[in-house]
């Protein structure tokens, strides 16, 4: 029973750590630049999941005040991480836009998206 209780109180953190590891693998291990960007998106979303997970309360509902439910803070979940993550998602999308602009610029200069080819090309042109 102790093992089940420990699992029920920790499994979301475990899954989020697995997602972070998958995103880090995408950024480090993949050679295609677009795959690296997809890995960055996965990493980012796992961090957002961690924040929203920290905001939940047992017995709390959605943070929209309902007059029939009362005004006690224990009945609504914590709204502060939601605000931070709301702005974080929009900043993440504009970050993706700038990264895609850089990617198009790199493709226009080197005609490839593979980072080993780009490194070889740079070394060749500097000699």
């Amino acid at each position: 029973m102790v093992a089940i209780d420990l699992f029920l109180s920790r499994y979301v953190y475990l899954m989020i750590v697995i997602l972070l590891a998958i995103g880090l693998y995408g950024m480090l291990g993949k050679r295609n630049l677009l795959k690296k960007l997809i890995g960055m998106n996965i990493f980012q979303t796992a961090i957002f999941l961690f924040f929203i997970e920290g905001a939940t309360k047992a017995g709390g509902t959605v943070p929209v005040i309902d007059e029939s439910l009362g005004m006690e803070a224990a009945k609504y979940i914590n709204p502060l991480p939601h605000v931070l993550i709301l702005t974080g998602i929009v900043v993440g999308l504009s970050l993706t836009g700038v990264a895609l602009a850089f990617l198009l610029r790199i493709y226009r200069a080197y005609k490839t998206l593979d980072d080993r080819d780009i490194m070889a090309n740079m070394k060749e042109s500097s000699e």
Partner: peptide, 30 residues
Amino acid sequence: MGAIDVAFVEATLGAGISGVLFIVALFLTR
């Protein structure tokens, strides 16, 4: 998890516009 505003923004931005931008960059490259 109860974060309806964040879910709305993720469903429109992450699953909508982000995919469109990625596909545009994809068709201009390889």
